[in-house]
Design a protein around this nucleic acid. Structure first.
Lengths: 161, 161
DNA sequence: ATGCATTGTCTGCATATGCAGATATTGCGC
DNA sequence: GCGCAATATCTGCATATGCAGACAATGCAT
């Protein structure tokens, strides 16, 4: 408690700075390997969570991607136009837009998934399995703490995973 | 090595997903406490690294913020217009734009720094000091690994910190 | 000293996203 | 059934950023 001091709050070694930089670098790294497909990293994540049933409609998807529903609408527009995804205005509740990946989208997710794993494994080559586990565990705890303080609106149904 | 599997590469517990979400949440959290100042989180970081001498010119600042020099130019425009920062076309090399915070900028950094520390400490309230150290150490190693794979262009002078 | 490659910053244009209001649908109380 | 609050998505507009080329200053080879 009271763990961060003035000196460390925005230093190179502050958690905030580190997560930001890692996020940017990894997104760029992965995206550089998607170039032939014209699909962005975020678009790939969108397709993946829809395919895996983690996001079934537009609102779910927005929460999964940590972007607004407005931004999500437009991303779905693009993915639908490119034939990777289809909208389906639900018959039960006609407000919600059910999402499903097409065969083409499914194939794309599969293909790019291997590239993502490969990139991460190149980065993690000098890590032992338990080192990774420790980092991930720490991040999970940190995220939970941040969500608590933010009174996080997306404490949504825990689609076990 | 070969630590990430297909299953875990984009799951809720993947390092990539976690760092992205933590970054977004913390940026929003901090920014919500800056509202009265009209300064964004990134703008505050910019002022801070300039004040601390970590970034002395526009190029340095771009690397510190992980954004392009073009975006940096415009951010400097705003901060200069608001009187927090001054440009000074260097006399030694007239290409570089030396940066310095004004008295007003200095005061702002000081004031907001306390809010940032406070926010982080609220998040970290259930962490022991050594838990934080472990997470930070893991992130530092992860960042170094990512920079290695990216052939990172900003392995710039190690302004010790 | 001249020409040319390099470097640092800036600018024009495109995209991604946030925000706030609009629209459509649902469900609830009466 | 009617009116109204709540919900899910969409749209218009503003901003932040990336990218690629422009421009200015420097320094190096000759």
């Amino acid at each position: 408690m009271a763990v961060l001091t003035i000196q460390s709050c925005a230093a190179r070694s502050s958690p905030g700075r580190l997560v930001r930089r890692i996020d940017k670098l990894m997104a760029n790294l992965v995206e550089s390997r998607f170039e032939d497909t014209g699909v962005s990293f975020v678009q790939w994540i969108a397709l993946k969570v829809v395919r895996d049933g983690v996001a079934r409609n537009a609102g779910d998807l927005a929460r999964e991607l940590s972007i607004t529903t407005g931004a999500t609408t437009r991303m779905i527009d693009v993915l639908e136009a490119r034939g990777f995804l289809v909208r389906d205005r639900g018959s039960a509740d006609r407000r919600v837009v059910q999402l499903a990946v097409t065969d083409e989208g499914h194939a794309l997710v599969e293909q790019l998934q291997h590239r993502v794993v490969e990139a991460w494994n190149e980065v993690l080559v000098d890590f032992e399995q338990d080192e990774v586990d420790v980092v991930v565990a720490g991040l999970i705890k940190l995220l939970a703490a941040a969500e608590r303080v933010c009174g996080c609106p997306d404490r949504h149904k825990e689609l076990a995973e």
